[in-house]
Amino acid sequence: MREVTNRSMEIRLKIWRQESPESNGYFEEFLVENISPEASLLEALDSLNERLTLENRRPISFDSDCREGICGTCGFVINGRPHGPFPGVTTCQLHMRMFEKAGLLVLEPFRGGPFKVLKDLIVDRSGLDRIIQAGGFISVSTGSAPEANSILVPKNLAEEAFNAAACIGCGACVAACPNGSAMLFTAAKIKHLNILPQGKAESKKRTKNMLDAMINEGFGACSNHGECETVCPKRISLETINFAFKEGLSS
């Protein structure tokens, strides 16, 4: 069981600083002392920021919101890997106790494809929204839906759709991909909607439009490196991409 501790630890952070999209970036190093191992990594940054503020220095800009792994707002590269070294978690779910032996963490923004640094660790991921605009929906307007149970969805199909729909749009897949491809993101939405009976009618058009949009937005093409799968905090599998490829071929 977790013990009551007043333990504290320290950690060195080497962080990417960049004032604006136009300015040049650089690394800056900080020592964070007296932080509880029970604190999250983002809470360690919070307290660093409070200290910097009182010292009249510019705090580190990073984005986060739910802080429980579901909104997809947070995310940076930690020691070379998006969302850090542990599989199946987002940056906000990392706790300092996981880094007791780490000594130094290097924090960099998600880079890749059209992602542009807005400030420090915050990047512009709006390209992902535009991929959804191209076809990541079922065209049904409010008021026109049939009785819910008139559409039967076998349990295993619902589960499979859910696994793909679990994507949180964080962009880690893009940051991990040597090509800066958003294929895992795009394929997840294609699969979620295409395998459900409700989404079948538009499946061909959806697949083509979304894949085209991905390239037009400046993301790279997928050449099956598989890096995306290993960093995906929601464990969306490469098989999802294979599914989308097949759908693409038949469309």
């Binding site: 929906f137 079922i138 049904v140 409010t142 008021g143 026109s144 839906a145 049939p146 009785e147 819910a148 559409i151 039967l152 969805v153 076998p154 349990k155 619902a158 589960e159 759709a161 859910f162 729909a165 979620h192 909607l193 459900l196 409700q198 989404g199």
Partner: peptide, 16 residues
């Protein structure tokens, strides 16, 4: 009804 039509993958029984 509407959320199902929009593709929400709600939990299902074995019969669908």
């Amino acid at each position: 009804d509407h959320c199902v039509a929009l593709g929400v993958p709600f939990a299902r029984e074995y019969g669908g």
